[in-house]
Design a binder for these strands. Structure first.
Length: 528
RNA sequence: GCCCCGGUAGCUCAACUGGAUAGAGCAACAGCCUUCUAAGCUGUAGGUUACAGGUUCAAGUCCUGUCCGGGGCACCA
């Protein structure tokens, strides 16, 4: 089955071919290959809808004036008859684009009106399915994001990773992939033990920790939770004679990790994110999967200083890494390898995308190396996103000194205050390139006027719906000949860029989802 | 010391992967509207893309070096 989008792509290919042939007819000595012919979207619609720079290249090669070259080439192009399009039929212009002008050596082209109308027809008939691609047909992809340790609440950084991951998963779905969203719960390993021990210590003697110490927010929350748990234990009976062992047992019975995980799940749901899977590290370890994964890598490991090492340097890492420590404990890295082994070997994902904060970038090389060592090279993409600061009243915003400088997602959503706070946060967090440090402007986020880009877009959406409610137009039988206003055509052209944008986001390993926020702002602007 | 990311208008950021006159939103300024306030509408101005070289017909974009900011360099997780 051939989608209309493919037809457009094919037409572009035909156009390229026609240009290529035209150049070789007029300037055979330039030795232009078909790959040299580029069709580019101009920076400004002033220059039309599509442009070709081939005359600049030929001009440079043959030391000729590019303008003259362009003028000599373009008439030949539109003499060409594309092979395939004939059957499609009725376009007065066979390529969907007609010649506009030669300027600064560029051959500028304009999209044909009938072609624009055809786009509109497709947009109307497909509705929400417009720009659905089949690029990922039959492919399983997993997006893993947030995955914050269940030892504290979600913070700003998790907001960025969370919303971006969720949006990326949507884009994959739009591109035809079967998508799974996953949260990796780090509930195993020695870190949890340390956490439990600290909880027990605070619960036993909450005043020792006291109010005087400058604790980080996570520590602060931990203290609150430990005090709460102590109160519950006190209700159950006299605590004066309890031993450390008793305390340990009782604190564990209160399941502090699960409580925090529940808190995280609530925050995630407030963010309108739905995970398909909460993957427990602990459960994986208990199933013995780590040993299995290590075994599968046996040929690439060696013993040194009583520890077991993986030769990650053979796959581009700058040093080898320890899998099993000399005390016999497995490293976090070993668990992570098992986790990714599970994703690829057991669950058979064709592609996995992990979203990590910038503080994990040093971990990328070894994870990629391990993935390659396991035989799944090229299937893992790791997105590193830069840090987030919260700006309020023009200054970096911190919570009270006692709580340190962690700002939780719950606090942020409360602070924004609006009913649709999650939408606002989503838009803001997603609107920056992953490589850019982000300042989250709280004052702007709280503004509900059109100054706030989120509401600018939302109001446009509301107006569109208002018009649709009151209109008598029958969209099942649109009269396209009524579309003549330049503003209308402009808007349709913009909307019809969507398939291209979806495609470009998904095919770029950096997955620049921020493009969508700019795109919808432009649509809203053209609509207004 | 080494590695990663950034440096673009007063501020926060874009720039479709090397193309044309570097664009938006805030803020600023001018005018209009409103009984006042808040807001709104129209317009204006704002740039040697950190700096110095290099490659190219063409560089914010690629290469080299320097400076500044952020992050990271565990048998931690």
């Amino acid at each position: 089955m051939r989608s209309d989008l493919k037809t457009e792509k094919n037409m572009n290919e035909e156009l390229k071919k026609a240009i290529y042939e035209a150049v070789n007819e007029v300037y055979p000595q330039a030795n232009i290959r078909i790959e040299d012919v580029e069709l580019i979207k101009p920076v400004d619609s002033l220059y039309g809808d599509l442009t070709c720079n081939i005359a600049l290249k030929v001009g440079a090669k043959l030391k000729l004036n590019p303008n003259e070259v362009a003028v000599n080439i373009y008439p030949k192009v539109w003499e060409k008859k594309p092979s395939e399009i004939k059957s499609v039929g009725h376009f007065p212009n066979v390529f969907g684009f007609r010649f506009k002008e030669v300027k600064s050596g560029f051959i500028n082209m304009e999209k044909d009106e009938e072609y624009v109308q055809k786009d509109l027809k497709e947009i109307i008939s497909k509705g929400k399915k417009y720009a659905d691609l089949d690029a990922g047909k039959g492919q399983k992809v997993q997006v893993e994001f947030i995955s914050a340790n269940p030892t504290g609440p979600l913070t700003l950084a998790n907001g960025r990773g969370g919303f971006s991951g969720d949006v990326l998963a949507n884009v994959f779905k739009k591109s035809g992939y079967s998508v799974e969203r996953e949260y990796y719960v780090n509930d195993g390993g020695s870190q949890v033990e340390i956490y439990m021990n600290t909880m027990r210590a605070i619960a036993m003697d909450p005043y020792k920790i006291g109010d005087s110490t400058e604790l980080m927010y996570q520590g602060w929350l931990m203290t609150e939770l430990a005090k709460e748990i102590r109160k519950e234990i006190e209700k159950e009976g006299d605590v004066r004679d309890l031993t450390i062992k008793d305390w340990d047992k009782k604190v564990r019975e209160k399941e502090p990790i699960n409580r925090i995980l529940e808190n995280i799940k609530e925050s995630v749901s407030k963010m309108n994110i739905q995970f398909d899977n909460w993957f427990s590290e602990k459960a994986m370890v208990e199933k013995g999967e780590v040993d299995g994964a290590i075994k599968s890598l046996k040929k690439l490991t060696y013993e040194k200083d009583n520890a077991l090492w993986l030769k990650t340097t053979e796959f581009g890492d700058d040093k080898d890494r320890v899998l099993v420590k000399k005390d016999g404990e497995k490293t976090y890295f070993a668990n992570d390898i098992a986790y990714h082994f599970d994703k690829f070997a057991k669950r058979k994902f064709d592609k996995v995308v992990d979203l990590w904060g910038a503080d994990h970038h040093g971990y990328v090389a070894r994870m990629q190396a391990a993935t390659e060592a396991m035989g799944f090279g090229g299937k893992l993409d790791i997105i590193i996103f830069q840090m987030v600061r919260l700006i309020k009243d023009g200054k970096e915003y911190r919570m009270s000194k006692r709580k340190g400088n962690y700002v939780t997602m719950d606090d942020l959503l409360d602070e924004i205050g609006a009913k649709d706070a999650a939408d606002v946060a989503r838009f803001f967090f997603v609107s920056r390139d992953f490589d850019t440090h982000m300042d989250f402007d709280l004052d702007l986020a709280k503004d509900t006027s059109e100054k706030n880009p989120v509401y600018y877009v939302k109001y446009a959406y509301a107006r569109i719906n208002g018009i649709l409610r009151n209109t008598k137009v029958d969209f099942s039988k649109p009269d396209l000949s009524l579309i003549t206003e330049p503003a209308e055509i402009d808007l349709i052209k913009k909307i019809s860029e969507l398939p291209e944008i979806v495609e470009s986001v998904i095919s770029d390993k950096k997955y620049p989802v921020h493009k969508f926020t700019y795109y919808i702002s432009e649509i809203a602007e053209k609509f207004h």
